[in-house]
């Protein structure tokens, strides 16, 4: 695993040589859909930034359906694009279409989710954030802030979903290093404000008004915002009585951090084009073996 180094030089060179004239690269991008806040922002960023990397982007929205995605990828192959970027809807069922792309000698990159194929040479690389790393960052911040001594309540994302499993895994990997750090209660808040509020209400009662609890870790900001409401309604002070750390860095958590009700949030970047296009265009110019997973770095933001 390798943290991507900024490739600004290449990007600037690209910008100067190509932007003024016809685009240098034709790239097809098959996006999952437009659910939530993050994905539309991600799509917009990919479209907006394409020009500055000399990319003519063919964008296809699959509306959450894999068959749409397969159709879009086959259309890209027929058009003879220089490279294909896929944000897969699901992890399975990709062998055939990836083989067709390989036969047409079109390199395929994955963004966001992974695919499950036996032959890893069917795609060049996966360029995405690492949910596990997000959990680790949150855990590390909490370990530092609490000096390794902290009873934690956790609000998990949707049970069994990849972000929930991996954020929990990364977080636990860090706090397991500290004998005095422990998750004393954990429940699923389904990634929603309502869910986080209900779960925190129950935690408040089951832990006697959060007695002895030092922190709340939520797998996303929405649940944390619900938890903040629940604490305030119970006369508690989020951010003071409890350290509040979550993932996403949405505008509402920024407001909460300014109000002193949240302490830290790990940013899930939607502006990731700057990490994706240089890798893809460099590969088109000069195909070399890349790591199978290029991790987009995550930033942790704190209130102060």
């Amino acid at each position: 695993m390798n943290i991507l180094k900024p490739v600004t030089g290449a990007a600037v060179a690209c910008l100067m040589s190509g932007a003024a004239f016809a685009q240098d690269y034709t790239i097809g991008f098959s996006q999952v859909g437009s659910e939530g806040d993050w994905r539309p922002a991600f799509s917009k960023n990919m479209r907006d930034e394409a020009g500055s990397y000399g990319v003519d982007l063919k964008f296809a929205n699959a509306q959450g359906k894999q068959e749409e995605q397969l159709r879009a990828v086959r259309a890209f192959i027929a058009q003879g694009v220089d490279a294909i970027i896929i944000a897969p809807v699901v992890v399975t069922g990709w062998e055939d279409v990836l083989e067709e792309a390989a036969d047409a000698e079109i390199p395929v990159f994955l963004v966001d989710r992974d695919v499950d194929v036996d032959d890893k040479s069917l795609y060049v690389s996966r360029i995405s954030a690492d949910f596990n790393l997000e959990g680790k960052l949150a855990g590390s911040w909490l370990a530092t802030e609490s000096l390794g001594n902290c009873q934690i309540v956790e609000m998990q994302g949707t049970t069994g979903s990849a972000p929930a499993l991996e954020r929990k895994g990364g977080f636990e990997a860090v706090i397991d290093q500290f004998p005095a750090m422990e998750i004393v209660a954990t429940q699923s808040g389904d990634f929603t404000t309502e869910g986080g509020k209900k779960v925190m209400e129950a935690f408040i009662k089951s832990t006697d008004n959060l007695d002895g609890i030092c922190a709340a870790f939520a797998h996303n900001d929405n649940m944390q915002l619900g938890a903040i409401q629940a604490m305030k309604e119970a006369g508690l002070k989020p951010g003071e009585d409890l350290l509040m750390v979550s993932v996403d860095y949405v505008p509402a958590i920024v407001d909460a951090m300014e109000a002193g009700e949240a302490n830290a949030s790990v940013e899930l970047r939607s502006a990731v084009a700057e990490f994706i296009y240089p890798v893809v265009t460099d590969y088109i110019d000069n195909p070399t073996e890349l790591d199978k997973w290029i991790v987009i770095p995550s930033d942790l933001h704190t209130a102060d």
Partner: peptide, 16 residues
Amino acid sequence: ILTADTHTSDPVSVAL
């Protein structure tokens, strides 16, 4: 009741 509870409109997941 649900929307005023979280004072957020969340059509995707409210009352799911």
